[in-house]
Every structure is written in C-alpha cells, then in structure tokens.
C-alpha cells in the first residue's frame, strides 16, 4: 500500500481482461509496479491514453516538422540575401540557431520532467525526461559543430574558450552524464533501486547551466555576440527573421516527434519487461 501511494500508477492496458490479469503479480514487480497498477490518478499517466494520443501525434509532428524545416532551410539557402558584413555565411543562422535552441530546450524538458517526477511521482515524467536526452544531445552537438563552422569564416577561428562556447560544451557533457545515469538506472530498475531518482536530481541540478548559457554573453566579455532576440525586440532584419522562425518551429516539431517516439520506445520496453517478469514468475 505504501508503495502504491508513493507513485501514481500508470493504469491498466487497453484491453479489459488484461487488467485483471495484470493486477495479481503487480506488487511483486519491483520498480515497475506502477505500469500494472490500475486506478489512474493523472489522466495522461495512463499509458493506453498516452499511446492513443502519441500514435497519431508522432507521425504528424515528424511529418510537418520535416516539411517546415526543409522549406525554411531551402528558403535560407536560396532566397535570403547575403548579410552586410558576413555575406553568404549568414545562412548558417537558419541551421545553427534551431540546433542550439533545441539543445537548451532539451535540457529544459529534462529539468521539468525531473521536477514532476520527483515531486508528483508522475510515471510518464521519468520517461519524457529520458526521451528528451538523446535528441537534446544530438542538437547540442550539431549546434556546436555548425557554430564552429560558422566561427571560422566570421571570427577567424574554429573555437575559443569564451563564456558562451564553454558553457555550451558543458551542456553536451551534462547530456552524456545524464544519458549514462539514465542507462544505469534502467539496468538497476529491476532491482528496485532509487537510481532513477539520482537521474532526476542530476537533471534538475544540470539545469543551472541553462541560464548561465543564456546570460554568458551579458555577464562576461565573450567573442560570441549578445542575444539578437530579447523580450519582444529583434536585431535581426525581417528578411532573416522569418525563415529563422519557420526553421525554429520546424525543428521544434521534429524534436517533439522524436521525444514522443522515444517515449513510446521506453514505454514498450518497460511493458515488455514487466510481462516477461510476470511470465517468469507464473
């Protein structure tokens, strides 16, 4: 009873006869009990409900995102005029900015998920945090790579250890740490250890880097320029701003689709493991 109260259950699987079958061994499945525990407290804690939504939302987000992003990139590549100082390299804006934005949005997703997981013990929150890690790390790495390629023709260097670049590199290492922790926690989950909580705590602690990245160009003299878009003001001309906006929205949709797909993957893994364990016990 104690265990049940501490973690809101994910609820039953879609088919009704399944529920009864699920219930009996649930208490014995340490760490995964919530998957089989009916009586959903949160609407979306119910995996059947989540899966119903995710099943059509995943291809929708990915499809529209890929379409919008490729349109925006073509626009940036073929239509947009050269910048007054940078010339043609300004086009890197449309790939670099969405990447770094999603690198930071990825960790924000992890941090919010970790918070919800720790405080409300929402089982889907643990999954969504872990699902955002790989795409977040991928976008962070792509942001670093495209930024480096942009730095060479504009600044005259591939890399400098200024506040912005260094804090963003730290973000990538934080992702590596989080992914390693989450994988270790997944292995330990069978033993019912609290390693999952360590992952969530790491997700919250690591979030301190996000405002540091954001403020680094204001607090410290850096080679990277200060923010172009602040609170309703933009120093980016409309000819650049619009394709940038479309690219950011498009890549964000792709990110959302990837997170959903990875949540489905993690959920399916957990459900399969739970079923296998029940079979072994029967």
């Amino acid at each position: 009873m104690q265990m049940r109260r501490r973690s809101p259950p994910l609820g039953p699987c879609p088919a009704a006869p399944q529920v009864a079958e699920h219930r009996q061994p649930a208490a014995g499945v340490a760490g995964l009990y919530w998957i089989d525990n009916p009586a959903p407290m949160h609407g979306f804690a119910n995996p059947a409900r989540f899966l119903r939504l995710a099943r059509w939302l995943t291809p929708l987000l990915l499809g529209s995102g890929l379409l919008l992003a490729s349109g925006a990139l073509l626009w940036g590549l073929l239509v947009v005029p050269p910048d007054r100082l940078m010339g043609d390299t300004v086009r890197i804006l449309f790939i670099h900015v969405p990447c770094v934005w999603l690198g930071m949005a990825g960790w924000s997703t992890i941090a919010i998920s970790s918070l919800v997981e720790l405080v409300w013990r929402h089982p889907l929150a643990a999954i969504s945090g872990r699902a955002a890690a790989v795409p977040g790390a991928a976008f962070t790495a792509m942001g670093l790579a495209t930024g480096s390629i942009w730095g060479r023709p504009t600044w005259g260097t591939w890399w400098v250890w200024d506040g912005r670049l260094t804090s963003f590199l730290i973000l990538l290492f934080l992702y590596f740490g989080y992914i390693a922790l989450a994988n270790a926690a997944q292995r330990d989950a069978a033993a019912g250890s609290g390693a999952n909580r360590v992952t969530a705590i790491f997700g919250i602690v690591g979030a301190i880097n996000i405002p540091i990245i954001n403020r680094s160009v204001v607090w410290w003299n850096s080679l990277h320029q200060p923010p172009s878009i602040t609170m309703g003001k933009s120093s980016i001309d409309g000819t650049f701003l619009w394709p940038l906006l479309f690219a950011a929205v498009g890549f964000s949709l792709i990110f959302g689709g990837v997170v959903l797909a990875r949540m489905r993957m993690l959920l399916a893994d957990i459900q399969a493991e739970a079923r296998l364990r029940r079979k072994a016990m029967a």
């Binding site: 590549l77 890197i92 790939i95 991928a138 792509m142 390629i149 942009w150 060479r152 890549f251």
Partner: peptide, 15 residues
C-alpha cells in the same frame, strides 16, 4: 559557400 554547405550537411544529415 563551402562553410554554408558543410554546416547544412551536418544539420540535415544529423537530424
């Protein structure tokens, strides 16, 4: 343009 193409290639292929 070499730099532009390289950056786009990384972004598109990576995604």
């Amino acid at each position: 343009w070499d730099f532009v193409i390289a950056a786009y290639a990384i972004g598109v292929i990576g995604t």
